[in-house]
Design a protein around this nucleic acid. Structure first.
Lengths: 337, 337
DNA sequence: CTGTTAGCGCTTTCAT
DNA sequence: ATGAAAGCGCTAACAG
């Protein structure tokens, strides 16, 4: 930058002003600096800038695993929004491992990221898990949560209305004539499954159907769990004719279980997933599912974060995005008994 | 840091030495500094450090779309390896858009990333595309390519042996009795499809089978293309009994096409994919595919990059990782004619 | 409208 | 084994 200034016959301050569009710069100086920059192939040093301004212009996204399709969508939205705003996106996969998380958080703190976005852990959300993060929040580091809470700290939050989504799914099933509708859940301890379960119950109630614990299973959030729980549900004497799943991965497992048992979908069993990951439309039969606006989630999270950065003490915001039921081939009227 | 030094009754230089394990620090000073750091909850400022050392300790990964499952796997490998080495991973989705790419590259240059990993574009690789990158390479910015080349620059490279992979797939098909084996490709212009096509031809040759252009289709790299091309191939009078696809997404399209035509897989048609994305094992029937070690690709890319950073002028390296044929349910002996 | 100057927080000779 | 001091490249008063 010093070189540029010299070449243009001005001071570094002028160059800086031009670069940041702060203060006045005469048209003449402007032109000379521009050409000097081009000649030298100059690119400002963001590190130095950050050191001086105390703003790193970097945002971090903490998630369980970027290889998870749903997370990847959130990440994509975050990435785009961050870059649009001139921020560098840093994505970190934590795997739900507290040690990794701690290391990562420290690294991010060292790098002086301007803010952090937290997405829900896949498995159970440990209490200690949030320890380091809560500390950061208290130190005034802007944080926004996506679809989860950070216990013991009031932070901005953006989530989807999974309760309504699950309810809509049940409505759809009921409208097709199903009466025995089951729910294949994830861990109910304190996770993502709770909202969906609530929506499921709402839907039943609305249809005047009784809640039957025998039709509801806890489990994990992956295919294997879906398969296992579905097997249990479908080999019972009185089996459900439709299954709402906590997420698409689980639904894939359910589909596999159905195939294993020789049940045709949707003829013998209707299946509804949750998330609408890319593959949901590709499996056979294509999966009816509740779409969560994942990308948008990431984008809005960034927007909140940016606002929080500019207005550290503003009132905390929270947005709830609607889900959308996407009807495909895995649901249909139940076979007449 | 100044505060820490003061509290510990030493100079900042000593603190710095302790932090970087450079130079001697007496056990006594060491202890005092440690406690001072704890008391203050001190975390060194990486930006300042980077400014002084001219090393940002950040690595960037440029890819088409992080939401693409195969890319996500590479990203994961890159992320882990980078973090293990104390580097911050920055992932940028470019979408094959030259404008976005240019903006991104400038941003990365401003942030003074220590190195960049390039992964193949999904569509055709435009010439202009690499313009900015090549310039960086010439400026001495460490770059390593994953599964693609950077024209006009000698850079380290890590790729997979897709030729052998495709050949193995053909071998497998032949061993099961197939004689009419087709290939559903991506764009042959200058893309990823070429190696697989070569392997396909090798495989045929090895089996003493003639190459038949009528069994080979160009296309894109997505499901839609796979479906379209498969439809063309399978409705022809003399149709193939097995199809090797340029990637899994294409294979999913092929599966859909088969279902559409009432062809049972593998009874009427065997299908082999490429990549082994997570979903390959989840579709019905589970897809036989050539697995590429995506995560490892990302890890090794980082390793190369790190070596290049420490040894800017060393000889350029290149690694070729083996692929692995994963046999599942989508392949089997052809139906007797 | 523009130049001067004092940091930002850390590393790194060079002395001691 | 440790301290003093000179940067790293930029921003932000402040003075003109």
């Amino acid at each position: 930058m010093y070189e540029v200034a010299q070449r243009a016959g001005v001071s570094v301050a002028t160059v800086s002003r031009l670069l940041n569009e702060s203060g006045y710069v005469s048209a003449r100086a402007r032109g000379r600096v521009q050409t000097a920059m081009n000649d030298l192939g100059y690119e400002p040093n963001g590190l130095a800038r950050s050191l001086a301004t105390r703003q790193s212009e970097m945002l971090a996204l903490l998630l369980t695993d970027i290889a998870n399709p749903f997370s990847a969508q959130i990440a994509r939205g975050m990435q785009d929004a961050a870059q649009d705003a001139g921020y560098v996106p840093i994505i970190c996969s934590i795997d739900g491992d507290p040690t990794t998380e701690l290391k990562t958080v420290r690294m991010l703190r060292r790098k002086r990221v301007d803010g952090i976005i937290l997405t829900p852990g896949q498995g159970e959300q440990r209490q200690e898990n949030s320890e380091a993060l809560r500390a950061l929040a208290e130190r005034g580091l802007p944080i926004v949560c996506v679809g989860r809470r950070l216990e013991g700290a009031t932070v901005d939050r953006v989530s989807t209305d999974t309760v309504a989504g699950a309810r809509d799914a049940v409505d759809h099933l009921v409208a097709q004539g199903h009466r025995r509708i089951g729910f294949v859940g994830g861990p109910f301890s304190r996770g993502v499954a709770l909202g969906r379960l609530e929506g499921y119950r709402d839907g039943l109630r609305r249809a005047g159907l009784a809640y039957d614990g025998a039709f509801v299973r806890q489990g994990e959030l992956d295919e294997e769990s879906g398969q296992r729980e579905a097997l249990a549900l479908l080999t019972a004497p009185r089996r459900p004719t439709a299954l709402l799943c906590v997420n698409d991965r689980t639904a894939f497992g359910v589909l596999a279980a159905a195939a294993e048992l020789g049940l045709r979908v949707p003829h013998d069993l209707s299946v509804v997933g949750f998330d609408d990951v890319i593959l949901a439309s590709l499996v056979q039969p294509a999966l009816t599912t509740v779409r969560q606006p994942a990308r948008e989630l990431g984008q809005i999270a960034v927007r909140f974060l940016l606002q929080r950065i500019t207005t550290p003490r503003g009132p905390s915001q929270s947005a709830v995005l609607p889900c959308l039921l996407v009807v495909r081939r895995s649901t249909g009227p139940p076979a007449p008994t």
